[in-house]
Design a protein around this nucleic acid. Structure first.
Lengths: 155, 155
DNA sequence: TACTGAAATAAGAAATTTTCTTAATAATGA
DNA sequence: TCATTATTAAGAAAATTTCTTATTTCAGTA
């Protein structure tokens, strides 16, 4: 995995362009603006929030483009999506465990920590932000079935 | 934290009733059916999926009730929501870190692992399910601001 | 630099997911 | 049993996400 490492946005943008070329994604102004907006923000903005930011420089951009672009950037590994794609999923099992989520089919699998293995290493600096009520650890990837089915388009 | 521990659904239901009483939630047939459906499933069902299951025994139940009930159960700590509540959130920072998500206001905070601390203990049994592309570790709780504002209704 | 094919976009509609409003129903405690 | 109050059904409405089609723009090549 290759990260874009820089605190200066335009350096990140340069790195972003390279990554786009490497993954044969066209470098459009829309993509650049969206990436800039996201890079400049510490707020983990929602789609709507990105839309509002980008709109200022690019008034004719459509919301759909934000959705498409963020999704394709996620797929390309350029940005990170916090949480699940769209629909909520529930679990009645509250014993400590985590989940493997398939990025292709959306299937969710339980992963139980092994005997003696510490379930969750709760880092104490988390308390800085508030009181933790529960932990949600997801591993995102491609499940065996989708891998076999060759649904995995890119790579 | 108190877990409902049993492999037999009706035992879980009994425990669920107690928890409801303890948190002064009324024990309605709808809630019982929804809890049963979720307990019986290993599929981490979506709201729609729960709706379809419960409908079989209770044809007049409304989708809205499923939403309300799952949310209040989550709030009461009886069921677990995989992922975020509704809207997607994005992050352009791909250096390994995790998130503190406020259950009240939805705010997302970055948490960076300390120097020398292993970022993510990737348990090898995860590979059983597929190839991991990235890790999404969220700590859910109440941020200081919401705590102060007393938005924290229950407890 | 102009040309070409393919990918990406805007616009608006449409689908999906989630929440709200109101009146009726049902659970709890007296 | 009764009264109180939370919960529900029904349907509307809001919010979020995806799709369709025609147009534009990128990137590679002449």
């Amino acid at each position: 995995m290759q990260y874009i490492q820089s605190n200066h946005i335009e350096e990140k943008v340069t790195a972003f362009k390279k990554l786009c070329h490497a993954r044969s994604l066209r470098v459009t102004n829309q993509r650049l603006e969206i990436f800039r907006a996201l890079s400049a923000s510490k707020e983990h903005p929602s789609v709507e929030a990105v839309f509002q930011i980008v709109r200022k420089n690019m008034p004719k951009i459509s919301l759909d483009t934000i959705y498409r672009t963020l999704s394709s950037m996620e797929e390309a590994g350029v940005v990170f999506r916090v949480g699940l794609s769209n629909r909520a999923r529930f679990d009645a099992d509250l014993t400590p465990h985590y989940h493997f989520v398939c990025m292709e089919c959306g299937e969710v699998f339980d992963v139980f920590p092994q005997q003696g293995q510490d379930a969750f290493p709760l880092p104490h600096q988390v308390k800085e932000f508030g009181e933790v009520k529960n932990v949600n650890l997801q591993f995102h990837g491609v499940c065996h079935r989708c891998r076999k089915a060759g649904n995995d388009v890119k790579n």
